[in-house]
């Protein structure tokens, strides 16, 4: 088995009395796509925020390539090679698409100067299919393009591990296909991916393994087909009938 790239160790985050993430542990291996699923409010995005340093954990540790990164601010985390996208897109509105991606390249893992960063940015824009929008102001893009911009900025940081937070949400079927293609090609470059997703079909077909969160706790972990047949997982999703139906359909 390959090297452990990310280790989440008894990670806990309390907001007041609420345990948003409660004693979650799992490991991720290099080259892997790990799906993170769970009903709404299960703590998935909070977990991302703990991993990349937006929040400081109440307890527990995060290790990236065997290095302790617990409590490091986000700009230190990305410099070590761990980049992320946001579920609710956050383009730098008054800057062009190219400038947005140059920011990612400049301040990412390779700490590039402006000119090399511009070259990387052009390359990444072509890779995700945004080249024709390079001079558009980011705020003027539609949602699908903004999601691709999120991915482009994160990729420009030249990460070893990419956290994707619902990059498919809100996209139409054609756009979903396109994004899935981009994700596969990212994996082919050897970048590991930890992704939160609600579109079950996508996560089941892309992921090597899946971790299920429910009420902040880890409910299950395993291969997609194992997890999908786990009665506890089905029960957790029963509060969310549509999701339960989807899982059951895929079972059949």
């Amino acid at each position: 088995m390959s090297r452990v790239i990310l280790e989440v160790d008894h990670l806990t985050k309390a907001f007041g009395g609420l345990l948003a993430v409660n004693d979650v542990s799992f490991q991720m291996y290099e080259g892997e796509i790990l799906g993170l699923i769970g009903p709404n409010g299960a703590g998935k995005t909070t977990l991302f925020n703990l991993v990349n340093g937006v929040y400081k954990p109440t307890r527990g540790h995060v290790r990236f390539l065997s290095q302790e990164i617990t409590g490091l601010p986000p700009y230190e985390v990305v410099k070590r090679g761990l980049a992320r996208t946001h579920q609710i897109v956050r383009p730098l509105n008054e800057m062009t698409v190219l400038e947005n991606v140059v920011v990612g390249a400049c301040f990412g893992a390779e700490n590039l100067g402006l000119e090399p960063a511009a070259r990387v940015a052009e390359e990444v824009l072509a890779f995700v299919g945004l080249a024709e929008y390079r001079d558009t102001l980011a705020g003027k893009l539609n949602l699908a393009l903004k999601k691709r911009l999120e991915v482009a900025r994160a990729l420009a940081a030249r990460p070893k591990l990419l956290l994707l937070d619902e990059v498919l949400a809100g996209l139409n079927p054609a756009e979903v296909e396109r994004m899935l293609g981009v994700i596969r090609r990212i994996r082919e470059q050897g970048i590991s991916i930890l992704m939160i997703e609600h579109i079950m079909q996508a996560i089941m077909s892309l992921s090597d393994r899946v971790v299920v969160l429910n009420f902040g706790q880890k409910l299950a972990e395993g291969k997609p087909e194992e997890v999908a047949s786990d009665p506890r997982v089905i029960e957790a999703y029963l509060g969310d009938p549509e999701m339960a139906k989807k899982i059951l359909e895929e079972e059949a």
Binding site: P74, R84, L92, V103, R153
Partner: peptide, 8 residues
């Protein structure tokens, strides 16, 4: 967002 992109 800038901090997540690596801006100190």
């Amino acid at each position: 967002a800038a901090m997540v992109l690596g801006v100190k």
